[in-house]
Design a protein around this nucleic acid. Structure first.
Lengths: 258, 258
DNA sequence: ACAAGAAATGAACGAAATTCATTTAGGCAC
DNA sequence: GTGCCTAAATGAATTTCGTTCATTTCTTGT
């Protein structure tokens, strides 16, 4: 009946904690040494290891493969053991999210112009979460309180806005607006190729259909060779929108003319 | 079979039509009279009814309550019957999505200036999907081919862009950029009150923390009385970003000077 | 009239998250 | 030291969901 446990199944050759040798039969390497019940002398799990294992799983199998069972298996542990460290699967997602935030590039805010810094930050932010779209619903609603790296990221961004002279009351709104655009654009990266092909509905929507045709045509012709990344459709939309947002935001508050 | 309907075994396995309510389970329509197996003389289901029932369920219980069982129960049908009309639950979401698209206000594109029309469209688009954020991952990746109302919506928007004189190759990118911002902003609407409260991390992020404080302060003071809606934090961020995007996009292509 | 197929029922199945009782180990209080 | 409280593990069970399948019954096209 309930056969979802590592009883007969083994780990995916990632670990074998205490090398307890059997009588004389080392049947197969990947056989689980089977920890006996009860608290182990040395703690097997902590949130750090859980985070790492989750990231590895996501890398190998995508979010589809990120199940509590799979996570437990990878850590050489029973699924229920995870619940000593996280209250629910959502907590695992939060761990992953906060880990990822450290990978967002905020370096520009210390060194470059506001425009350049925002652009660099936004691209890297989008790139990170384009590979982790299932986290977006989580982030968007997640109180920042227990996400230290996320707060650190916001602090660096805010510093860049302050340095540019932005009025305090508008900074958070501006960041939120940029972030909203970034999250939405991250989804767009994952969209399939012909997402806008109208097919049988083409006659219903002549203007839109030709616009779609022109778009892909111009995109195909525009191979950017000089070291810049080659732009896909989602990249050119992101570029257009980001530049518009940046220039629009720059003009949204009364700067003293230099 | 016996002539009397065996009310002992219900087809649900999860809950029972009679008054025995376990958790909440608001008593759905009257208790259905039990249909015997086999094809009924008159078809009970079609995609139209499924869509309506799904929308009602979402309205009453949110997306959490939208399960195939609940949907079937509401339609007076066994869960498996749904699969004669949709291939999977995702199809139900697509039905709902396309239905909703008809509610997005594109009327401005026929009558107003491009700026006003985009603004009206964007606000209504965001408002619709702020109440349906679970659809966003679906929409963002969904080929438009079998979503007729979605195509109709795009056609109206495209017409507005064409009328304004936009270059064909950039129209789709501009729409995608706006849409990305809209989807991201829809999530933001659902964010809890103190999402940016840094709590114990406040000392780590002094600039960000004060910016957050100033934001809510200015938002609280700014009650808009004259018929306009009172702006919450997510509204003012949306407003700021949308205006920036619109003006930035307007300046992104070489219009002939009037 | 009859075969094909559409549209229901009802009974499973399998995956997944989560809970619970139980076992064991470490760290305090006394 | 002894004893208790709690943390961290196992193993089994529970619940909920989406989905499939065999079967029944009815409609429709030839």
């Amino acid at each position: 009946m309930t056969a979802a446990f590592p009883a007969a199944t083994q780990h995916d050759g990632a670990d074998s904690p205490p090398a307890r040798s059997r009588r004389q039969e080392p049947p197969v390497p990947p056989v689980m040494p089977r920890r006996r019940a009860g608290r182990p002398s040395k703690a097997v799990l902590d949130t750090e290891q859980i985070t790492r294992a989750a990231l590895k799983l996501i890398e190998l199998q995508g979010y589809k493969g990120l199940t509590m069972s799979a996570l437990a298996r990878r850590l050489g542990v029973a699924p229920s053991a995870l619940y000593n460290h996280v209250a629910a699967k959502a907590d695992v997602l939060v761990l992953v999210e906060d880990h990822l935030m450290a990978g967002v590039d905020v370096s520009g805010f210390a060194t470059q112009s506001w425009e350049s810094a925002v652009r660099r930050w936004a691209w890297s932010y989008r790139d990170v979460f384009a590979r982790h779209t299932p986290l977006i619903p989580v982030i968007a609603v997640l109180p920042v309180t227990n996400a230290p790296r996320t707060v650190t990221m916001y602090e660096a961004v805010t510093a860049g806005f302050v340095a540019e002279g932005w009025p305090q009351e508008r900074i958070v709104d501006a960041i939120v607006a940029l972030e909203s655009f970034i999250f939405g654009s991250a989804y767009d990266v994952t969209a399939p190729e012909g997402i806008f092909d109208t097919g049988a509905l083409a006659t219903t929507a002549p203007l839109f259909s030709t616009a779609v045709g022109r778009r892909t045509a111009s995109a195909n012709g525009a191979g950017d060779e000089k070291g810049n990344r080659v732009l896909g459709p989602s990249d050119s939309a992101f570029s257009l929108g980001l530049d518009a947002l940046i220039s629009g935001l720059a003009g949204s508050w009364p700067r003293t003319r230099s």
